[in-house]
Design a protein around this nucleic acid. Structure first.
Lengths: 193, 193
DNA sequence: CAGACAAACTTATCAGTGTCAAGATTGGTT
DNA sequence: AACCAATCTTGACACTGATAAGTTTGTCTG
């Protein structure tokens, strides 16, 4: 007699790849990468331990996919911020805040994202987006065309500050997290960029 | 008959704890934490796989020890820089350079150090040292006593910039690594701190 | 509609890992 | 000389990433 057909789950899951990425994102968000294992995720989803390897070459490739996903979310958060920006002079501050806030909401994403080797800043979409905006904004603020090298330096330096602040935000007791945006604003302003 | 005594290694290693930390530092420096395993280190040293657990509660405690060691080295690098600083007005730039340079020499230390959860900025020795120097330096530069909150903000912001720049330095193609110190100086100066 | 084929999944297995319990070895203390 | 605590080994356990071989299934072709 064949196994009961009553509500037995289908042999083919259907969209296991997306399900896996989703589960991975959630796991990292809650517990961090440290104890994430392919087998555990497979268990959670209710699929055999080798199933994911039909969709991802190996664990590293799976984590790459997750990294891409987070990067995408970050980029679109910045894009939304840019669209909603009313006071054009403050666009760089707004973007900085958006960056910090994104990771403040999901601290373990930050840890995960930058603990891996493979990030290449030149193709890192959030930075590319920021760079483009920054170039415009800086020249608009100064009222005249700026030397390319100057723009590049200022952009990198500002972004570095934002990135560093993000790292610190995730450490303990350094920022007044009740008014996170105010803090970030004041910190960035205190550098007189 | 007992086993040959000819040059057989002693049962007690002597200073296995230090040897383990040393081997761990070297391994991370060369290959990164990713594939570091207790067993592999034990093999390298020529000791059984359970031996380290007489000295470290678990792998995490071992990594804590290594983290402490690197942190100590970083702190003393900053202290040396401070002692050797001739032009007092440039002390903050010098410290920033020293920070970046430290990790530029050992990129994988950076990845390791900040990929772990446990860092508390308020007790993180390098930052404490930098903070103290920065407080003096800022007031000296401005020629009068500054509001505590202002000092704190500027310090955090400057340190964030340095930290962020370090992260970027370790990515590809963003800095002219031939003249690293010049680059860092110009970048920091471009913010008009 | 039948059969073939490729994609998606399971089962079984491998080497490697962290960790612990039990026992062996040793240097130092009484 | 006897003992003790620290140090190390041996042998095990559960868990991990990964692969090979076999099973199920949707889909495409004749």
């Amino acid at each position: 007699m064949s196994p009961k057909k009553t509500a037995s789950k289908p042999y083919h899951h259907g969209n296991l790849k997306e399900e896996f990425i989703k589960a991975g994102l959630e796991y990292i968000d809650r517990y961090g990468i440290e104890n994430l294992s392919m087998r555990r995720l497979a268990d959670l989803i209710g699929v055999s331990s080798a199933a994911p390897y039909a969709h991802f070459k190996n664990k590293d490739a799976f984590l790459d996919a997750i990294q891409d996903h987070i990067t995408l979310n970050l980029t679109s958060a910045l894009q939304v911020t840019e669209k909603n920006c009313q006071i054009r002079k403050k666009i760089l501050l707004d973007l900085g805040c958006a960056y910090v806030t994104f990771f403040y909401k999901n601290p373990l994403y930050f840890q995960f994202l930058f603990s891996r080797r493979s990030i290449d800043i030149n193709t890192f979409p959030p930075f590319r987006f920021y760079s483009d905006i920054a170039a415009e904004a800086l020249e608009q603020m100064h009222g005249h065309k700026l030397d390319n090298e100057v723009v590049r330096r200022k952009t990198i330096a500002m972004w570095a500050t934002v990135h560093g602040l993000t790292q610190f935000t995730l450490m303990e007791g350094i920022l007044n997290t009740d008014k996170l945006e105010d803090e970030i604003n004041e910190l960035l302003c205190s550098l007189d960029v």
